[in-house]
Amino acid sequence: MLDRLVDTFFNWQVMSEYLPKIVEGFVITIQLALAVVVSGIACGLVLAMVRSFRMRPVNFLIIGVVDVLRALPPLVIIIMFYFALPTVGIKMSAFVATWLALSLVLAAFSEEIFWAGILAVPKGQWEAARSTGLTFLQTLRFVVMPQAVRITIPPLTNRTIAITKGTALGAVVAVGEILYQAQTAYSFSYNPSPLTMGAIAYLILFIPVVYFGRWVETRFAWKR
């Protein structure tokens, strides 16, 4: 029984054959994840700052788009970008489609989190800063955002981890990341060992991230 288990899930021959592929996928997953985190959070931050100008039509637009991105499953968005948009002439690679979809989803969530953070900064902070002659943008940048960002770090970290794990969804549109490589190797070798390797690769990648998230949560928990 144990032999069989090892032979099925930890088949040495299969594993050594496909290890390079998994490593290749590992690198692509990291690239995709970093790209999503950077563009998603930056975009969310900008949107939240734009929203603080409280221009009605602009804010309605932001709220509308954010709501849609929060309500749709990320996989549905990826598939729309990759399979539906080309029918109206907008073509993009699988990597770009996945990156764009996940970035937009992260931007939407982080916009909401940053906005809640901005709202949590008391009105007196705005007034004190404006009374010393700081402009609206200077107040936002030097007084409000530093305080808002601090309280948003724990929820933002958790959300970012959850969305970065979504890079595995790229496998569905054949982005050559870990899961896709594992799946392809599995169908060639007809042995699930590549899936085991893929799973281990994800654990190597994300367990430190989960621990980082836990650390951030206790570090920033009730500090203001």
């Binding site: 008391p122 902070q125 007034e127 004190a128 009374s131 010393t132 002659g133 530093p146 305080q147």
Partner: peptide, 16 residues
Amino acid sequence: RRRIGMVFQSFNLYPH
């Protein structure tokens, strides 16, 4: 505004 100082009831110091 920088010619007019303002002191608030709730101080409104920047906590960061």
